[in-house]
Simulated assay, not measured.
Amino acid sequence: MREREPMGKDKRFLDKAYSVKTDAQTRSFYDQWAEVYDEEVAENAYQQPRRCAQALAGLTAPSETTILDVGCGSGLSGIALDVAGFQTIDGCDFSPGMLAKAGKTNVYRRLFETNLNEPPMDAPDGRYDAAACVGVFSFGHVKAEALDDILRVLKPAGALVIGLNDHFYEEGSLTTRLELLESEGLMEILDREHGEHMPGTGLKGWVITARKH
């Protein structure tokens, strides 16, 4: 079998991810990135899918948990959830190209398209035992207010894990929203763990776990 050639510089997208500003730009960008996304993040040793899956497994009984992989992308987070023992995984994303890639992983029960910045998503209230948001919240991508709809689709006492990089954590809108929802009695922040995000880029990040009230 012929070895796969490494990506040329013209096919790299990671350093351009913050350049998108509108929803239309975001969808187009990720549709184009879908083909080489897994390869590019693997080159940079992306750690958040594994970290988030392990954190969530510590809060639930994975084999009995129905989970929504929010912003599932190409399915790397779903694969990590599957490895951690989760057996009933649904996924949603804004990019049809990414959803097509995720479908090839064969770990999802259902995949559906959604714009998290324009709720509600296509899921009823209280459908899921848990939700994972791995690399979803970022500049020009999903806004912190999307947390409200994610909580809506969780059952009471449902678990939530969020993985994000240092840059967006320090920007503050997500942590402010989390703390507001906690102050309103809608959820409880359980832990914030700092660690590896994408070592190949030198970037660290956070895994935040929470539980709906």
Results as ranks from 00 to 15, higher is better:
140 G>W: 05
14 L>E: 07
123 A>K: 03
81 L>W: 02
129 D>A: 09
25 Q>T: 05
91 G>N: 01
62 P>Y: 05
98 M>E: 05
71 G>F: 00
164 L>C: 06
206 W>M: 14
169 Y>V: 04
55 A>T: 01
140 G>Q: 02
103 G>V: 00
151 L>F: 11
137 F>N: 05
197 H>G: 00
147 L>W: 08
93 D>I: 12
208 I>S: 08
73 G>V: 07
123 A>Q: 03
109 R>C: 06
86 F>G: 14
46 Y>I: 10
89 I>Y: 13
188 E>S: 13
210 A>D: 02
153 V>M: 10
156 P>M: 04
67 I>E: 09
50 R>Q: 10
137 F>C: 02
50 R>S: 03
40 E>T: 09
164 L>H: 04
124 P>K: 10
31 D>R: 04
142 V>E: 03
185 G>A: 10
79 I>R: 11
165 N>D: 14
1 M>V: 14
161 V>C: 12
195 G>D: 09
49 P>W: 11
202 G>V: 04
21 K>R: 12
181 L>I: 01
140 G>A: 08
49 P>C: 09
88 T>F: 09
15 D>T: 11
181 L>V: 10
130 A>R: 03
187 M>Q: 01
3 E>M: 05
59 L>C: 06
130 A>E: 12
139 F>P: 05
15 D>W: 05
117 N>W: 06
33 W>G: 06
153 V>S: 12
208 I>M: 12
32 Q>T: 01
56 L>T: 01
103 G>K: 09
